[in-house]
Design a protein around this nucleic acid. Structure first.
Length: 420
RNA sequence: GUGAGCGUAGCCGAGAGGUUUAAGGCGCCAGGUUGUGGCCCUGGAGAACGAGGGUUCGAAUCCCUCCGCUCACCCCA
């Protein structure tokens, strides 16, 4: 028997309510803030990701689904959403539109990782980007949108962490002093942190090991090393966040895993121990567009993991609206009646009434049982009697009442219910 | 890539070396008279116990390998 590949999941009908709920809110949110949808391909030139995310990052070195197609092009399933958006922005000359350009996406993301709670090899992200403007109000707007997204979903107990990791002008000196500081504490560090010192010093800051906690707490803060521009930017961002009454907290240990981030970074985490704690995060990436061959272009974005959102909705026992449910079930007795039932269903549907016809030749009892089982509100019964009288029997499954009606009345009645 | 736990019908889940040709519950199917659901009653279908190998007179029950699932590390949404 075939099974879904490791780290992937089928989203069964019973789960769809959550997804529809989240997607609907996401789309409405973007509409409200003036962000337009952009869909990009599931795979891209692999080089796009290597260049943007960073050659040395885990995502690029060991998590990408990279493959050669039959003409020898090296492609990769997208391991994140921002780079493709930037690629499309450049490819289609969106830099000639009034700036900033505001875009959003809902897309599948692929990373070859060991699956875990809230972590998959194929997962979905909802993200949005404001490209083409360095105004700190955009930082605040994106953070606010992110926050609003979770709020409108009904999620509680969320923490909003903000930090600034500087730009290419000021970050090098920060990294120097960070390394310098850590070199005096090597002996007490965990083995992961020892390799991090070389590979990714920023990551030293968010090591979860208790042994490294003290060291990380006392480490130099990136915000103390910001250049004038970054410092002002960060201050203004914070003042806007305050004006927007966002309950943020500056977290000096917040860093992000992709190389392209500059200045503002932020993350939203729910309360609780779950290892995969961030439900969403983002930041500014002022060098990325240029890195991809465009002219220097500031931008900021955010992405949320859909599965993690679903996980938290469930954890917080937030109920989502039922999917549209009115179902009319047509039961029949005999071949002649079957023909009539099929015909009638077609008529109802052309009137916008959702209808399901029984199949096979089962007893009426069985047909009703099925109708009940799939949650039908009404059952239309067609039998010899009805055919003779030119009527059908309409049964309300909630009340158990039923009465004979003419086909014309039936249409009218059901249409009224469908529209209500 | 590393570590830990787990793997019995669609789902939940007993069994822990010998009447097990493997309980029970949910779900599914069919009946409980003539054309009627949801409750109740009865019956039925459905698993050689993840796969392969071994130990033993005998294994779902013990051992090994592999596969898979889950959780954690790494990393990230």
């Amino acid at each position: 028997m075939y099974k879904a590949p490791r780290g992937t999941a089928d989203i069964l009908p019973e789960e769809q309510g959550y997804w529809r709920y989240i997607e609907d809110r996401a789309v409405a949110l973007c509409q409200l803030y003036g962000y337009q949808r952009l869909d990009t391909p599931a795979f891209e030139d692999a080089g796009l990701f290597a260049r943007s995310i960073g050659e040395g990052t885990d995502i690029v070195t060991k998590e990408m689904y990279t493959f050669k197609d039959r003409s020898g092009n090296t492609l990769a399933l997208r391991p994140e959403g921002t780079a493709p958006v930037c690629r499309a922005y450049l490819e289609h000359g969106l830099d000639n539109l009034p700036q900033p350009v505001k875009l959003y996406y809902l897309a599948a993301i692929f990373r070859y990782e060991r699956p875990q709670a809230g972590r998959y090899r194929q997962h979905y992200q909802f993200g949005f980007e404001a490209i083409g403007d360095a105004d700190p109000t955009l930082d605040a707007e994106v953070v606010e949108m992110a926050w609003q997204f979770f709020k409108t979903l009904g999620l509680e107990h969320l923490f909003l962490y903000v930090n600034s990791i500087g730009c290419r002008k000021c970050r090098p000196s920060y990294l120097e002093s960070l390394k310098h500081y850590y070199s005096a504490h090597v002996s007490g560090l965990c083995s992961d942190c020892k390799t991090r010192m070389e590979k990714n010093p920023l990551r030293l800051l968010d090591c979860k090991k208790p042994s490294c906690y003290q060291v990380a707490e006392a480490a130099p803060k990136s915000t103390d090393y910001l250049c004038q521009e970054c410092e002002t930017h960060f201050e203004v961002v914070q003042s806007y966040l305050n004006i927007l009454k966002l309950p943020f907290e500056v977290n000096h240990r917040l860093v992000r895993g992709l190389d392209y981030y500059t200045k503002t970074v932020f993350e939203i985490q729910p309360l609780g121990e779950g290892a995969q704690n961030a439900v969403g995060g983002g930041g500014r990436y002022d060098d990325l567009i240029e890195e991809l061959g465009g002219k220097p272009t500031s931008a900021i974005g955010f992405a949320a993991g859909m599965e993690r959102v679903v996980l938290n909705l469930k954890k917080q026992k937030i109920s989502v609206p039922d999917l549209p449910a009115l179902k009319v079930f047509l039961a029949y007795l005999g071949n002649e009646a079957k023909l009539e039932a099929v015909r009638l269903a077609s008529v109802l549907r052309s009137d916008g009434v959702a209808a399901i016809v029984a199949t096979g030749d089962r007893s009426l009892k069985a047909q009703l049982r099925q109708a009940d089982g799939i949650g039908s509100n009404y059952v239309v019964i067609v039998g010899e009697e009805e055919i003779k009288n030119q009527t059908v029997t309409l049964r309300n499954m909630l009340t158990g009442e039923q009465k004979p009606v003419s086909p014309a009345e039936l249409k009218k009645l059901l249409k009224r219910v469908a529209e209500a």
